[in-house]
Design a protein around this nucleic acid. Structure first.
Lengths: 114, 114
DNA sequence: GTTCGATACATACAGCCAATAGGTATAATA
DNA sequence: TATTATACCTATTGGCTGTATGTATCGAAC
């Protein structure tokens, strides 16, 4: 059986994390807060979501990780690879396609039919 | 362990099907085509997605089903129950919340931080 | 009159995302 | 000294949704 495509709406956490890291390198705990802030609490990704995601993306070569000691604390900073930038572009395109598709159906559900 | 909430982006097929049925009663095969049409091929739900979804929603009391013979063909027509209308409203709200949240992060990823 | 595509329904199987629930350790604060 | 915030981590689970496949009938084409 062919590997199924991911569902329509998945990949949002990945999209958001990549978008943040496109801005500047960040560490996991910081990403968790930043998403909550930037989305005004509309989207809250728990650490249990973000950390495994970061690890998976690093394993895929989408991100590179660098441990660093800052203010007496160990942090793992992530940054986008070239592959990650491409992945981000693809996810943004996907998102826009789906978002517009949903919008069309919501606004004009019986276009062409009836 | 508490039952986990569904992921952010799931529920799109359900949302779209409910939105169509809020307009008028429809049958499964028709719904498949209508979503493709209304979304201009942005979203293509195969029959293997739509039919089980309709069954599940009927089982939950969100839809009511009525078999009917039209033009020599057996069709199962679905229509929204009151519960279904509420469910639709909730999903639309969810969608808008997430959609705006994603938009905010994409447009202004480092709001409040930096 | 048979073959083919479109219509119309259905289920089995599988994969993977992400949500919850924990757990460790250190710094700062009260 | 106890608690809160920081900062990382993994295990487990569950459900959505994708693919594949099967059945049957109608109409059109050949």
């Amino acid at each position: 059986m062919k590997k199924p495509n991911p569902p329509f709406m998945t990949g949002v956490p990945e999209l958001l994390v990549l978008r943040l890291l496109a801005e500047r390198e960040m560490y996991g705990y910081e990403i968790v807060r930043a998403i909550r802030l930037a989305s005004r609490d509309a989207i809250v990704l728990a650490e249990g979501v973000v950390y495994p995601l970061l690890h998976a993306m690093e394993a895929k070569g989408i991100l590179t990780a660098k441990e660093r000691k800052v203010e007496g604390r160990n942090r793992v900073y992530y940054r986008l690879s070239a592959k990650g930038q491409k992945r981000l572009d693809a996810l943004i395109g996907e998102w826009e396609r789906v978002q517009e598709g949903v919008h069309s159906v919501l606004e004009n559900p019986t276009h062409g039919s009836v």
